[in-house]
Each structure stands twice: as C-alpha cells, then as structure tokens.
C-alpha cells in the first residue's frame, strides 16, 4: 500500500513566484489497484509521481510504502522495488547498447552488477519469447542498437524492462503521450496485459481520457493539487469519457479558461 500523508509542496519558495502545489495532500493506493490519473497541465499529476519516486522531495508530510517511511529515502534506493516508464521513450532504454544488452541489464535489477558476463546466451530464447507477443519484430533484432529503433519499439522495450523483475509498484508517466495513436494503442494493451499478469499495483498518469476510462480499476482526477474525482471498481465501470469531460470543463470554467 502506498500512502501520501499531509504532503506539502511549494515551488520557488521564498521568491515572488512562490507557488503552492500541494497543501495537506492525502492520497492512498491499495495493493493491486490500477489507478488512472487525469487532470489538466499543472494539476500536480507528474509532481505526485516525482514525489513518490523521489525525483522531488516534499516540504513536509510523509510518504509510506507498505508502512515503511520513504519520505527521505534516496531516489535510486526507492526504485529497487518500483518500476517507472517515462513519457520520453529514450529515458527507459540505453541507445548505444543493443536489445539483448538492454534486457540483460534490466533483468539483473536487484542483483549485484559484478564482474561476471553482462549477457547470458542461455536466456536469449526466453527474451525472444518475451518479445514475440509484441508483434513489433523485436525478437529478430536482439543485436540491433536500441538507438536505431522507433519510439514505439523503444517504449515497448522500456515497459518490458521496467517490469522484468518483481516490483511492488509500476509508475507510468504519460507513457503513451509521445507515440502515434496506433502504437499508443499497442503499448496500452501491453501495459494492461503486464499489469494483469504480474498483478502489480500501478499508477498511470495520462492525458487520454479514453484510456483512463477503459483501463484500470480506479480513476482519479486532479486539479490544482487536490483530488476532485475518485471513482473505483463498480463506480468506475459506469463512468464514461463524457462524464469526465463534463467535470473537466466545469473546473476549467471556474478557473476562467
């Protein structure tokens, strides 16, 4: 379980541009939930992910994972049991290394990176079996540098790499936003499949309202650092993109947009 307790976060503290994003913000994600988070730009979606992952520290408040206080835990240590996929496909892979090397380095997460061989020939078949269902032809390109792949292929690889080893949380930060509609669809299907298979607790930030409605078992809408809508399970099933749009527009009108 993930908990954000009374989190406060200001930007540009002490300057004229000071901006309060989170004020006594509370948020809870139960084990096994697949949460879609929507909201306009600047609503705090990505900042929330950054606070959870440790790319950004809270001003005050607490962040707990399964009861353990990780508020001030180093970023790389938090990732030991957290997988993260970014909007930019190049952030999840290493362009100068080939697919096999990328998969191998991800496969070793949590184990020591010592002086034994980086790639294991015996695992090649297993990796191919993993890549085949993607239907992107990656299984025949194990020795191709990742820098030569398309954005969609890279993102698919990044998604596989971040979920290869056992993790407690999967954090998806607008991970389909930089892809064309067709590829985005493939990546979203793949995401759903992985989340179901591994039963990993997932938080997905997205601008695509349809994905937010279709996938996952909880939908959260954020606005100016607060949760303005939170529907799970049965309630979520009855919600449509139109409903969300309506709430969305209402907020925008109130803001004067």
């Amino acid at each position: 379980m993930l908990e954000l307790v009374n989190v406060n976060k200001n930007f540009n503290s002490g300057t004229i541009n000071e901006m309060c994003l989170f004020k006594d913000f509370n948020f809870k994600v139960e084990d096994g939930q697949f949460v879609s988070v929507v909201g306009s730009n600047g609503s705090g979606k990505t900042s929330m992910l950054n606070l959870i992952c440790g790319s950004m520290l809270v001003d005050s408040g607490k962040i707990l994972i399964n009861g353990e206080d990780i508020t001030y835990k180093k970023e790389f240590l938090r990732h030991k049991n957290v997988g993260r996929v970014f909007q930019d496909p190049s952030k999840g892979t290493c362009p100068s290394m080939n697919i096999l090397e990328n998969l191998s380095v991800a496969d070793n997460k949590g184990k020591p990176y010592n002086l034994t061989r980086g790639t294991n020939r015996k695992k090649i078949e297993a990796y191919k079996d993993m890549l085949r269902p993607l239907n992107l032809g990656l299984e025949d390109k194990l020795f191709t540098k990742v820098g030569a792949l398309s954005g969609g292929q890279r993102q698919a690889l990044a998604l596989l790499m971040s979920t290869m080893t056992p993790i407690d949380f999967l954090i998806l930060d607008e991970h389909t936003a930089a892809l064309d509609p067709k590829t985005a669809e493939i990546i979203m299907e793949l995401t759903n499949q992985i989340v179901r298979e591994k039963k990993v607790t997932t938080i997905m930030v997205t601008h695509n309202l349809r994905y937010a409605v279709e996938y996952g078992n909880r939908l959260v809408m954020m606005h100016e650092g607060t949760v303005v809508m939170d529907k799970s399970d049965e309630e979520k099933k009855n919600i449509s993109t139109e409903d969300i749009m309506r709430v969305f527009n209402q907020i925008s009108v109130e803001c004067g947009n």
């Binding site: 993260r84 380095v105 070793n108």
Partner: peptide
C-alpha cells in the same frame, strides 16, 4: 562486457535508466 561494465556504458548514455534500475 561485464555487468559492471554495462552500467558504465549506460551511465553516460542514460543516467535516468540507472536510477530506475535501483543503481
């Protein structure tokens, strides 16, 4: 071509990946 060497090759290329790997 060792595991440790892989990390060295990755760090200049994409430091974010190393953090994601818990390194």
């Amino acid at each position: 071509s060792t595991k440790s060497g892989f990390l060295l090759r990755a760090v200049g290329d994409n430091p974010t990946l190393l953090t994601s790997l818990g390194v």
